[in-house]
Computed example of a mutant assay.
Amino acid sequence: MPPAASTPPAPRPGAPRPAALLLALALSLAGPGLQAAGPGPGSPGVPGVAGVPPPGLLRQAARAALHFLNFRAGSPSGLRVLAAVLRGRAAVDARRTCRVDLEFTAERYGPEADGRLGRCSARVVFRRQQPRPAVNVTCARFMETSRRRREDLLLYKRAKRLRAPPGATSMPDSHGWIDPSLRPMWDLAFLGSSYVMWERTTQTLHYYMAQLSSVNQWKTNEDAIDFDYTVLLHEFSTQEIIPCRIHLVWYPGKPLKVKYHCQELHTAQEGSGTEGG
Protein backbone atom coordinates (compact mmCIF):
# COMPACT_ATOMS: atom_id res chain seq x y z
CA MET A 1 0.00 0.00 0.00
CA PRO A 2 1.55 3.34 -0.96
CA PRO A 3 1.95 5.83 1.89
CA ALA A 4 -0.83 8.34 2.27
CA ALA A 5 0.28 11.77 1.19
CA SER A 6 -0.42 14.80 3.31
CA THR A 7 -3.82 16.23 2.59
CA PRO A 8 -3.80 19.69 1.00
CA PRO A 9 -5.83 22.46 2.58
CA ALA A 10 -9.50 22.19 1.70
CA PRO A 11 -11.00 24.96 -0.39
CA ARG A 12 -12.97 27.58 1.44
CA PRO A 13 -16.74 27.26 0.86
CA GLY A 14 -17.63 28.15 -2.71
CA ALA A 15 -14.01 28.47 -3.85
CA PRO A 16 -13.03 26.09 -6.69
CA ARG A 17 -9.77 24.14 -6.61
CA PRO A 18 -7.38 24.82 -9.51
CA ALA A 19 -9.17 23.58 -12.60
CA ALA A 20 -6.07 21.92 -14.09
CA LEU A 21 -5.50 19.78 -10.97
CA LEU A 22 -9.11 18.69 -10.68
CA LEU A 23 -9.34 17.99 -14.41
CA ALA A 24 -6.31 15.69 -14.13
CA LEU A 25 -7.85 13.91 -11.12
CA ALA A 26 -11.18 13.53 -12.89
CA LEU A 27 -9.60 12.06 -16.00
CA SER A 28 -7.44 9.66 -13.97
CA LEU A 29 -10.49 8.36 -12.10
CA ALA A 30 -12.89 8.30 -15.01
CA GLY A 31 -11.27 5.62 -17.13
CA PRO A 32 -11.43 5.29 -20.91
CA GLY A 33 -14.96 6.57 -21.29
CA LEU A 34 -14.19 10.18 -20.41
CA GLN A 35 -12.36 12.59 -22.66
CA ALA A 36 -11.66 16.28 -22.35
CA ALA A 37 -12.32 17.96 -25.66
CA GLY A 38 -13.27 21.38 -26.80
CA PRO A 39 -15.99 22.06 -29.37
CA GLY A 40 -15.38 20.32 -32.65
CA PRO A 41 -16.92 17.93 -35.16
CA GLY A 42 -17.45 15.32 -32.43
CA SER A 43 -18.90 17.63 -29.82
CA PRO A 44 -22.55 17.51 -28.68
CA GLY A 45 -24.70 20.00 -30.50
CA VAL A 46 -22.36 20.20 -33.50
CA PRO A 47 -23.93 18.77 -36.67
CA GLY A 48 -22.26 15.64 -38.03
CA VAL A 49 -22.43 14.02 -41.43
CA ALA A 50 -25.99 13.83 -42.74
CA GLY A 51 -27.73 10.87 -41.11
CA VAL A 52 -24.79 10.20 -38.73
CA PRO A 53 -24.92 11.73 -35.22
CA PRO A 54 -21.69 13.33 -33.97
CA PRO A 55 -19.70 11.00 -31.66
CA GLY A 56 -19.80 13.62 -28.90
CA LEU A 57 -23.59 13.44 -28.79
CA LEU A 58 -23.52 9.64 -28.51
CA ARG A 59 -21.03 9.76 -25.64
CA GLN A 60 -23.11 12.45 -23.97
CA ALA A 61 -26.19 10.24 -24.12
CA ALA A 62 -24.29 7.17 -22.90
CA ARG A 63 -22.91 9.02 -19.88
CA ALA A 64 -26.36 10.37 -19.00
CA ALA A 65 -27.78 6.86 -19.25
CA LEU A 66 -25.13 5.46 -16.91
CA HIS A 67 -25.57 8.23 -14.33
CA PHE A 68 -29.29 7.43 -14.33
CA LEU A 69 -28.64 3.67 -14.15
CA ASN A 70 -26.20 4.01 -11.25
CA PHE A 71 -28.62 6.11 -9.25
CA ARG A 72 -31.61 3.87 -9.89
CA ALA A 73 -29.66 0.71 -9.06
CA GLY A 74 -28.60 2.23 -5.72
CA SER A 75 -25.66 -0.18 -5.47
CA PRO A 76 -22.14 1.11 -4.71
CA SER A 77 -20.84 -2.33 -5.72
CA GLY A 78 -22.58 -2.11 -9.10
CA LEU A 79 -21.34 1.30 -10.25
CA ARG A 80 -20.58 1.43 -13.98
CA VAL A 81 -18.71 3.83 -16.22
CA LEU A 82 -18.60 4.20 -19.98
CA ALA A 83 -16.11 2.07 -21.93
CA ALA A 84 -17.04 2.70 -25.57
CA VAL A 85 -19.96 3.71 -27.77
CA LEU A 86 -20.73 1.02 -30.36
CA ARG A 87 -23.37 2.62 -32.57
CA GLY A 88 -26.27 5.02 -32.45
CA ARG A 89 -28.62 7.33 -34.25
CA ALA A 90 -30.28 10.62 -33.38
CA ALA A 91 -33.29 12.60 -34.53
CA VAL A 92 -34.34 16.18 -33.78
CA ASP A 93 -37.97 17.24 -34.16
CA ALA A 94 -39.50 20.66 -34.76
CA ARG A 95 -39.62 21.34 -30.99
CA ARG A 96 -35.84 20.86 -30.77
CA THR A 97 -36.24 17.61 -28.87
CA CYS A 98 -33.26 15.38 -29.59
CA ARG A 99 -33.84 11.62 -29.31
CA VAL A 100 -30.76 9.41 -29.22
CA ASP A 101 -30.89 5.60 -29.56
CA LEU A 102 -27.57 3.90 -28.96
CA GLU A 103 -25.62 0.84 -27.87
CA PHE A 104 -22.47 1.04 -25.78
CA THR A 105 -20.26 -0.96 -23.45
CA ALA A 106 -19.66 -0.20 -19.78
CA GLU A 107 -17.34 -1.55 -17.12
CA ARG A 108 -17.31 -1.73 -13.34
CA TYR A 109 -16.08 1.35 -11.54
CA GLY A 110 -13.32 1.32 -8.97
CA PRO A 111 -10.22 -0.68 -8.04
CA GLU A 112 -12.17 -3.96 -8.18
CA ALA A 113 -12.85 -3.50 -11.89
CA ASP A 114 -11.77 -6.64 -13.72
CA GLY A 115 -11.87 -5.32 -17.28
CA ARG A 116 -15.02 -7.21 -18.18
CA LEU A 117 -17.38 -5.23 -20.38
CA GLY A 118 -21.15 -5.29 -20.31
CA ARG A 119 -23.32 -4.27 -23.24
CA CYS A 120 -26.03 -1.64 -22.81
CA SER A 121 -28.75 -0.14 -24.99
CA ALA A 122 -30.53 3.11 -24.24
CA ARG A 123 -32.85 5.80 -25.50
CA VAL A 124 -32.00 9.25 -24.18
CA VAL A 125 -34.16 12.29 -24.92
CA PHE A 126 -32.77 15.82 -24.56
CA ARG A 127 -35.49 18.49 -24.59
CA ARG A 128 -34.60 22.01 -25.77
CA GLN A 129 -31.17 21.95 -24.16
CA GLN A 130 -32.83 21.49 -20.78
CA PRO A 131 -31.27 19.40 -17.98
CA ARG A 132 -32.56 16.05 -16.66
CA PRO A 133 -32.79 14.06 -19.90
CA ALA A 134 -35.36 11.27 -20.11
CA VAL A 135 -33.60 7.88 -20.01
CA ASN A 136 -34.63 4.31 -20.77
CA VAL A 137 -31.63 1.99 -20.40
CA THR A 138 -30.95 -1.73 -20.04
CA CYS A 139 -27.60 -3.45 -19.51
CA ALA A 140 -26.38 -7.00 -19.38
CA ARG A 141 -25.56 -7.98 -15.81
CA PHE A 142 -21.92 -7.64 -14.79
CA MET A 143 -22.41 -10.02 -11.89
CA GLU A 144 -25.10 -12.18 -10.43
CA THR A 145 -27.64 -10.30 -8.36
CA SER A 146 -26.83 -12.46 -5.34
CA ARG A 147 -23.13 -11.59 -5.60
CA ARG A 148 -23.85 -7.87 -5.94
CA ARG A 149 -26.06 -8.03 -2.85
CA ARG A 150 -23.31 -9.79 -0.91
CA GLU A 151 -20.78 -7.15 -1.94
CA ASP A 152 -23.17 -4.33 -1.00
CA LEU A 153 -23.72 -5.94 2.40
CA LEU A 154 -19.97 -6.27 2.98
CA LEU A 155 -19.50 -2.62 2.02
CA TYR A 156 -22.36 -1.66 4.34
CA LYS A 157 -20.71 -3.50 7.25
CA ARG A 158 -17.39 -1.79 6.53
CA ALA A 159 -19.13 1.58 6.32
CA LYS A 160 -20.89 1.02 9.64
CA ARG A 161 -17.48 0.68 11.29
CA LEU A 162 -16.08 3.81 9.68
CA ARG A 163 -15.53 6.95 11.65
CA ALA A 164 -16.01 10.13 9.68
CA PRO A 165 -12.70 11.79 8.81
CA PRO A 166 -12.20 15.47 9.65
CA GLY A 167 -14.52 17.68 7.66
CA ALA A 168 -11.62 19.17 5.70
CA THR A 169 -10.45 15.77 4.40
CA SER A 170 -10.27 15.68 0.59
CA MET A 171 -10.50 12.54 -1.55
CA PRO A 172 -8.51 12.03 -3.64
CA ASP A 173 -5.60 14.06 -2.35
CA SER A 174 -3.29 16.12 -4.56
CA HIS A 175 -1.57 12.92 -5.72
CA GLY A 176 -4.80 11.15 -6.68
CA TRP A 177 -4.63 8.89 -3.60
CA ILE A 178 -7.72 7.55 -1.82
CA ASP A 179 -7.16 5.72 1.45
CA PRO A 180 -8.53 2.19 0.86
CA SER A 181 -10.19 2.23 4.29
CA LEU A 182 -12.28 5.21 3.14
CA ARG A 183 -13.22 3.69 -0.22
CA PRO A 184 -16.82 2.91 0.94
CA MET A 185 -17.24 6.63 1.66
CA TRP A 186 -15.96 7.55 -1.82
CA ASP A 187 -18.17 4.98 -3.56
CA LEU A 188 -21.27 6.20 -1.72
CA ALA A 189 -20.36 9.78 -2.61
CA PHE A 190 -20.04 8.76 -6.27
CA LEU A 191 -23.37 6.93 -6.08
CA GLY A 192 -25.19 9.98 -4.71
CA SER A 193 -23.44 12.25 -7.19
CA SER A 194 -24.76 10.09 -10.04
CA TYR A 195 -28.22 11.52 -9.45
CA VAL A 196 -26.89 15.08 -9.42
CA MET A 197 -24.87 14.55 -12.60
CA TRP A 198 -27.81 12.97 -14.45
CA GLU A 199 -30.22 15.72 -13.40
CA ARG A 200 -27.82 18.48 -14.48
CA THR A 201 -26.79 16.93 -17.81
CA THR A 202 -27.94 18.67 -20.99
CA GLN A 203 -27.22 18.04 -24.65
CA THR A 204 -24.01 20.07 -24.34
CA LEU A 205 -23.03 19.86 -20.64
CA HIS A 206 -21.87 16.80 -18.75
CA TYR A 207 -20.22 16.27 -15.38
CA TYR A 208 -17.77 14.12 -13.51
CA MET A 209 -17.07 13.94 -9.79
CA ALA A 210 -13.57 15.36 -9.36
CA GLN A 211 -13.25 15.35 -5.59
CA LEU A 212 -15.01 14.65 -2.31
CA SER A 213 -13.97 17.93 -0.72
CA SER A 214 -15.48 17.55 2.76
CA VAL A 215 -17.55 15.25 4.92
CA ASN A 216 -20.18 17.24 6.76
CA GLN A 217 -21.93 14.34 8.52
CA TRP A 218 -21.57 10.58 8.68
CA LYS A 219 -24.21 8.90 10.84
CA THR A 220 -24.66 5.16 11.31
CA ASN A 221 -26.51 5.03 14.59
CA GLU A 222 -29.61 3.68 12.82
CA ASP A 223 -29.89 0.97 10.17
CA ALA A 224 -29.23 3.23 7.18
CA ILE A 225 -26.06 5.13 6.32
CA ASP A 226 -26.82 8.85 6.58
CA PHE A 227 -24.18 10.75 4.64
CA ASP A 228 -23.91 14.51 4.14
CA TYR A 229 -20.94 15.68 2.08
CA THR A 230 -19.62 18.22 -0.41
CA VAL A 231 -18.21 17.29 -3.81
CA LEU A 232 -16.59 19.25 -6.61
CA LEU A 233 -18.07 18.42 -9.99
CA HIS A 234 -16.12 19.11 -13.15
CA GLU A 235 -18.48 20.63 -15.69
CA PHE A 236 -17.57 19.87 -19.30
CA SER A 237 -17.42 21.88 -21.56
CA THR A 238 -17.29 25.10 -19.51
CA GLN A 239 -14.38 23.58 -17.51
CA GLU A 240 -15.83 25.05 -14.31
CA ILE A 241 -15.66 23.30 -10.96
CA ILE A 242 -19.07 23.26 -9.26
CA PRO A 243 -19.33 22.71 -5.48
CA CYS A 244 -22.39 20.63 -4.55
CA ARG A 245 -23.55 19.67 -1.09
CA ILE A 246 -25.30 16.30 -1.18
CA HIS A 247 -27.21 14.36 1.43
CA LEU A 248 -27.98 10.69 0.89
CA VAL A 249 -29.55 7.89 2.89
CA TRP A 250 -28.55 4.38 1.86
CA TYR A 251 -29.32 0.85 2.97
CA PRO A 252 -28.53 -2.25 0.86
CA GLY A 253 -31.46 -3.30 -1.30
CA LYS A 254 -33.55 -0.21 -0.59
CA PRO A 255 -34.09 2.85 -2.83
CA LEU A 256 -31.46 5.53 -2.53
CA LYS A 257 -32.63 8.90 -1.19
CA VAL A 258 -30.78 12.00 -2.37
CA LYS A 259 -31.05 15.73 -1.76
CA TYR A 260 -28.56 18.26 -3.08
CA HIS A 261 -27.72 21.91 -3.53
CA CYS A 262 -25.12 23.19 -6.01
CA GLN A 263 -23.50 26.59 -6.10
CA GLU A 264 -23.41 27.93 -9.64
CA LEU A 265 -20.28 29.83 -10.53
CA HIS A 266 -21.17 31.17 -13.97
CA THR A 267 -24.68 32.44 -13.15
CA ALA A 268 -26.40 34.12 -10.24
CA GLN A 269 -28.73 31.12 -9.89
CA GLU A 270 -28.31 28.09 -7.68
CA GLY A 271 -29.50 24.56 -8.39
CA SER A 272 -30.99 21.98 -6.07
CA GLY A 273 -33.10 18.87 -6.20
CA THR A 274 -34.38 15.88 -4.29
CA GLU A 275 -35.20 12.35 -5.35
CA GLY A 276 -35.90 8.87 -4.02
CA GLY A 277 -34.71 6.00 -6.16
Rank of each mutant, 00 (worst) to 15 (best):
P2M: 10
A5Y: 08
P13H: 01
G14P: 00
A24H: 15
A24K: 15
A26V: 06
A36L: 14
G40V: 12
P47W: 01
P47D: 05
V49N: 00
V52Q: 10
P54W: 03
L57M: 15
G74I: 04
G74C: 11
G78P: 00
G78T: 00
R80S: 10
V81M: 08
L82H: 03
L82Q: 02
L82V: 02
V92C: 10
L102P: 12
L102R: 06
A106F: 10
E112A: 13
D114T: 08
R119A: 02
C120K: 07
S121F: 10
P131L: 01
V135T: 03
T145M: 07
R149K: 14
R149M: 15
Y156V: 02
K157E: 15
K157T: 14
K160I: 06
M171L: 15
G176H: 13
D179C: 11
D179A: 14
R183H: 11
M185T: 06
D187F: 13
A189R: 13
S194K: 01
S194V: 05
V196G: 04
E199D: 08
L212E: 09
S214I: 03
V215P: 02
E222I: 12
A224T: 11
V231K: 00
T238W: 06
Q239C: 11
Q239L: 14
Q239F: 08
V249I: 15
K254Q: 09
E264R: 11
L265F: 07
